[in-house]
Every structure is written in structure tokens, then in C-alpha cells.
Simulated assay, not measured.
Amino acid sequence: MAALAPSLAHGALAGSRSAPDEGAAQAPAFVIVGEGAGDVVARESLLDRAMGPKRRKKSSERLRRGRRPSEGLAFVARDASGAVVGTVRLWDVKLGESGPAGLLLGPLAVEPGLKGGGIGSALMHHAIAEAARLGHGAVLLVGDAPYYGRFGFSAERTGALAMPGPYERHRLLALELKDGALDGAKGTIKAAGRKLKGQAIEFVA
């Protein structure tokens, strides 16, 4: 069995009355670990609650359908009881017909009742750090620039790229993990990486 990605434990969620110096003595509010096979049902239920049924019609889904996440880049956040309260996955893509390899991040989702507690930010930081550690050059996503800009994403390097379906161009954002990783990237983003087989395809979200 492959080893899970390193985990990150986090202190109390926003709203806790614990003093800062009491955090070490308490159980962490959530921990980030590599996603396991047993997380499929919980992940899909969380995505349905957080994003609704239309999530499968997004352009990003065309790049995820029938594929496995990039090796070592699928994470969940668990609360103190072990329940899945957050998820993020990154997928291998090709940036145009003859362009460089990259990663597509998404979906990022947090249990609706826990939004604002730092889970989403922690998942983002962890996913980006792991992608860099594994040697990837760039991460792309479709999302709101005001939110993802805090992690270094912008539309400055995506003007020559396109998603395979309807999308808002200003929401196609990228982060270079290596300087120049997006140089010359142009054309429609294409799916790459590992394929799923059989019934597992049904659970890709």
C-alpha cells in the first residue's frame, strides 16, 4: 500500500474560546491526510452538499471524468471524530496540443457549516506545497480571483489557454510553482494522467 501524504494537524476552528497557548494541549480541530479508498462515499456526499447537483456539468469535469487524481495529490480534512469535512484534489493535464504538463486543482469543498474555519485555506496550502514538493511546474483552476489570489493564483498567464467547454475566461487562474513553467502554454487544456476503470469512473467528481 502506498504511503499517505504527510498530514497536517490544525488547532481550534474560528469561534473557539481557547487561548492561543492552550492549543497544544487540546485535540486538533481537523487534520489533513491523503485521501483513501474508504473516503469515496463521504467525499461525494460532501461535494453534493457543498456544490449541488450541477457540479458535474462544469467544464472542469470534462478534464476529470474517467481519470484518477495526480499521484499523491488527493487530500481530505477530518474533524476530531474522523468525519470528512473538506476535500481537494489535483489532476494531471496537458496545456495545449504540444504544451507543458500541469495540474488542475478542484474541486475544493468544505462542509457548509464549517466555512470560515480555515479548512479550505489549509487544504489549499497543503495541496500547493505537496505539488511543489513532487516537482510539478504549475497549477491551474477555475475560480474566483479574490479568493484564490491569496494563494498566488492570477489570470496573468492564462490568456492563451482555454477550457474544453463553457467557462468565464477571467476565472481561469494559474500559479507557477517553477519560474517559466507556463512559457509558451497555449490552446485548449487536455486531460492527462491515470485512467479509471469500471465502476470507479462513476465516483470521479
Results as ranks from 00 to 15, higher is better:
134 L>T: 04
77 A>M: 11
32 I>M: 07
131 A>V: 08
131 A>C: 12
31 V>E: 10
81 S>I: 14
114 L>F: 08
110 V>L: 10
80 A>S: 14
50 A>T: 12
102 G>K: 00
133 R>K: 11
93 V>H: 00
114 L>S: 11
3 A>F: 14
113 G>I: 12
134 L>V: 07
192 A>I: 07
55 R>I: 12
169 R>G: 07
70 S>R: 05
112 P>D: 10
63 L>P: 02
117 G>P: 07
79 D>E: 12
205 A>Y: 06
171 R>G: 06
65 R>Q: 15
116 G>N: 08
198 G>C: 04
94 K>D: 06
85 V>K: 00
67 R>C: 10
153 F>Y: 04
139 V>C: 07
59 S>I: 06
155 A>S: 15
156 E>G: 03
78 R>F: 08
154 S>M: 06
89 R>M: 15
136 H>L: 09
40 V>D: 05
106 G>S: 06
35 E>F: 08
62 R>H: 06
27 A>C: 11
22 E>W: 00
196 L>E: 10
64 R>V: 15
204 V>M: 11
84 V>M: 10
40 V>N: 04
172 L>S: 01
125 H>G: 11
109 A>L: 14
37 A>P: 15
115 K>Y: 02
197 K>A: 13
113 G>A: 14
202 E>R: 11
149 G>S: 05
1 M>W: 13
98 S>A: 14
46 L>E: 02
116 G>T: 08
86 G>Y: 01
27 A>K: 09
13 L>A: 12
136 H>W: 15
85 V>R: 00
46 L>F: 10
118 G>R: 00
58 K>A: 15
166 P>M: 06
147 Y>G: 06
170 H>Q: 09
161 L>A: 02
156 E>F: 03
133 R>N: 13
155 A>Q: 01
50 A>G: 09
136 H>E: 07
163 M>D: 01
81 S>M: 11
148 Y>I: 10
110 V>D: 00
22 E>V: 03
137 G>S: 13
32 I>A: 02
20 P>G: 05
168 E>R: 10
164 P>H: 01
177 L>G: 04
185 A>R: 00
57 K>Q: 12
3 A>V: 12
28 P>I: 08
164 P>G: 03
165 G>M: 07
173 L>C: 04
69 P>W: 01
167 Y>W: 12
13 L>G: 11
126 H>N: 05
5 A>C: 13
96 G>V: 06
91 W>E: 01
19 A>T: 08
125 H>V: 13
197 K>N: 05
141 L>D: 00
142 V>G: 01
34 G>W: 06
93 V>T: 03
68 R>D: 06
198 G>T: 02
120 G>W: 01
178 K>M: 11
192 A>N: 03
18 S>Q: 08
104 L>A: 04
43 R>C: 12
107 P>I: 11
55 R>L: 13
128 I>W: 00
68 R>Y: 07
156 E>D: 15
204 V>H: 03
102 G>P: 05
44 E>I: 14
60 S>V: 12
69 P>N: 09
68 R>N: 06
